[in-house]
């Protein structure tokens, strides 16, 4: 057992802290009856996840996690919730009928299996660091070896933009689908 005061011990403590933040945030996101609290939990979970990415020696991905998921996705989610009519009473009831035992069993089994595979498999160790995880390395990879991924990302974004245009096409008036029936 490594002593706590050593560098490895402190690193371990920080690692456990980030894991606790991630799991705690995810639990809050899944269990909170209040939707805004759930999104806050999600944001905390993303922050913990960013810490884990930092541990895996990829600060770029960690910062992107914060910039995109906390700064954009969570904000958009909260915005959407605030624009929607408040039906918190319904939600609280729906959450109670969740079937907690079955969900716990399913998630526990999945977690156990993944953990077992992770621990039992004899993973081949890379002889050296694949790359330094820097922006330049990621950029080169994205435009050469993994250019297919890059193209697919642009396709997804194009579809998203087209979808937004279609949704926004009716203009600022009331949507025609509901009012135009009469």
């Amino acid at each position: 057992m490594t002593p706590l005061a050593s560098a490895e011990g402190l690193t371990g403590l920080v690692f456990l802290f980030t894991v606790a933040v991630t799991v705690g945030g995810a639990t809050l996101a899944a269990c909170a009856a209040n939707l805004i609290r759930a999104v806050t939990g999600l944001a905390i979970g993303f922050l913990g996840l960013a810490g884990l990415f930092y541990f895996l020696n990829s600060p770029f991905v960690a910062l992107m996690e914060i910039l995109i998921y906390v700064g954009a996705v969570c904000v958009a989610l909260v915005f959407g919730i605030m624009l929607a009519p408040p039906r918190m009473d319904r939600l609280a009831r729906a959450n109670r009928n969740f079937g907690a035992a079955a969900a716990l069993l399913a998630c526990g089994t999945l977690f156990g299996l993944v953990a077992w595979v992770g621990a039992a498999t004899d993973w081949p160790r890379p002889a050296s660091l694949v790359n330094d995880g820097s922006v330049a390395a990621i950029g080169k990879g994205l435009l050469s070896t993994y250019s297919m991924v890059f193209e697919l990302i642009s396709l997804v974004l194009l579809v998203a933009i087209l979808g937004a245009l279609v949704v926004a096409r009716s203009g600022r008036g009331l949507p025609q689908i509901r009012t135009g029936a009469k």
């Binding site: 805004i36 944001a43 992107m64 914060i66 906390v70 700064g71 909260v78 922006v135």
Partner: peptide
């Protein structure tokens, strides 16, 4: 990048 990543979190604070 780090400054912009953390600056984007502040909006969430005002929102909440």
């Amino acid at each position: 990048l780090m400054i912009f990543a953390f600056a984007s979190v502040a909006v969430l604070g005002i929102l909440i």
